[in-house]
Structure formats: structure tokens, C-alpha cells
Amino acid sequence: MAERLRTPVGEPYGTGGRGPSPYGTGSGGPAPYGTDIDGPFPYGADPGGPSPYRTAVEGLRTYRMVAAMWIRSTMAYRASFALTLFTSFCVTFFDFVVILLMFGQVRGLGGFSFAEVAFLYGSTGTAFGAADLTMGSLQRMGRRIRDGSLDVFLLRPVPLLAQVAADKFALRRLGRVLQGLMVLVWSLVLLRDEVAWSWEKVLMVPGMVVCGAVIFMAVMVLGASALFWLQDASEVTNAFTYGGNTLLQYPPAVFAQDLVKGVVYVVPLAFVNWLPALYVLGRPAPAGVPSWAAFAPPFVALVCCAVAGLAWRTGVRAYRSTGS
């Protein structure tokens, strides 16, 4: 539209010369807003069209603001916050103890050594933890849709996805990331002599964690998009996110080949860590996947984002709100 290109001019209120307050006594003065409906934007800042870059920047800014508000909200109940933090710490800690105990008893799993399994566990754990920390709230959007409180989000001049993702932001979910990261670093220490390291393998480790997190996030957004039609679909999404995370903690050889194929070709979760990790470990890819697939995660992540973005937009347009 042409009006988007128009440079805003002058003071938007047209109240110049009416003293310090535009609410001054002269009610017969000029109309505060011009009669031109394509007129300048308030504050001279046309937010512009939906360029993906602008939306992303606005989204990040919004996310920060909303997340900060939620952290402050949590602090409003100090005792409760302290208790949650303590519980969360305990859960994470015991989770960690369980892994230690398990690896204390089992030397290998599906032909994988202890360090190799820890590598799988740590890489998917970090990726999933990061996705859950930032996007985990999306699965709770179903309730917001049911009770109609999503309406309020839609009234704000900032991207909806960022608001929903930052909704009820909980810092305690950082524990999961830290736990995964710890296991990952530990496994790398153990693997430092076992693996024939090269530059692409060194770069592949952070790369797979980042791409893995993005793939998990995209799956979460995709799942949340379904909530616009089916408000109870969050359990289905959980099967792919939480379930996928559990699956990826173990070597593919442990599972039935059909399941592995599904994770490669249907839901691209194998790209989160299996394929690149197997490459790093110098093992053949499962289910007859070519070895170059280990380098595919960035592209898979991009495609996932595109699909999720499209689904999200379609979902928002299909939003039905509630009766009142």
C-alpha cells in the first residue's frame, strides 16, 4: 500500500500553539487529528510492513519485555518463587543422579559407549532445554484460546508469537539447559581422545545444538498453531517435543528401524542430533541415510521454520475468539 511508504510529517496531533497541554481550554481549536485518513502515524513511527527482518527484531524486543514482566510477576510472590526454585533445583539434580546411576551400571547401549550415549543425551538435552526455556509456554496457549484471554495479546502492536512464547516465562526452566550442557561438556571431555577431531566436527557440535534447538522450537510453534483449531492438541505436540527429546537421548540402534525412518523422514527430529552426532562419532547413519545428511540440519531447521511460520499465520487468521 502506498501509505506505508509515506514519510510521516509534522506533529501528529496538530495541536501546535495550544499551550503546554493539548487538552487546553480551547475546545473549539483544530481537531487533534487531521481529516486525512492516510495521515501520519502517531509518534511519526510507522511500524512498516511485515518484513520478516522487522518482525523478527520486534519479536525479540517484545519477548524481552514480556519475559521481564513475568520475572517481576514471579518475584511478587517471593516465598513461592523461592520454593519453586528449590523444587526445580531438586528435580534437575535428581534427574542428573539418575543418569549417573544408569551409566554406573551400564557400560554400553546399542553398541555405543558410555561417553557416546552421554554425548547424545547432552546434545539433545541442551537443544530441547533451550527450546523449552524460550518456547515452552506455547503449549499453554490452548487455555488462553479457550478462555479468550488471547484477545488481549492480539490488541497489542507487537508480534503475537513473541507474546505467547514469553507468556508465563519461567527462569527455572534454565535448569534443564544447564543440566544438558553439563552432560554435553562432560561427554566431550571423555570423547576428546576417542574421536578423530577435525574442524568440521568441532564446528558441528555447537552447530547441531543450535540447529536442534531451532528444530524443536519450530515443532513447538507448529504444534501451537494446531491449537487454533483444536484447543486440546497440546498433548500431541508434547509427544513430539518431550517424546522426541527422550528418543534422541539414546542411540538409534536401540529402536526399531521403522521408528528411526519416521524420525528421519516424517518428523525431522533425527537432524537435531542423531545424524550430526553419528558423523562426529564416526559411525554410519541409520536407516540408509546418506552421510552428507549430517550437514543438513541448518537447512532442515530453515524449512521447519518456514513451515511453522506459515502454519502460525494460517492459525492466527482462523482464530475464533470466544463468545463475549
Binding site: 502515524f41 502517531p42 510507522d46 511500524p47 512498516g48 514482566m69 510477576s73 479468550g148 484471554s149 484477545d151 488481549v152 492480539l154 490488541l155 497489542r156 502492536p157 507487537v158 508480534p159 463475549s324
Partner: peptide, 19 residues
């Protein structure tokens, strides 16, 4: 929607926008 949001104000009597 987001572009329009800067130019309109909405009060839903039964739903608060406040924290």
C-alpha cells in the same frame, strides 16, 4: 492488525489488559 493497534484503543469490560 499490529499496525492498526497503534491507532486504536480497546477496553473489554470483562477482560483486563493489566498485569
Amino acid at each position: 492488525r499490529t499496525r492498526l493497534a497503534r491507532r486504536v484503543g480497546v477496553v473489554f469490560g470483562q477482560r483486563t489488559t493489566l498485569w
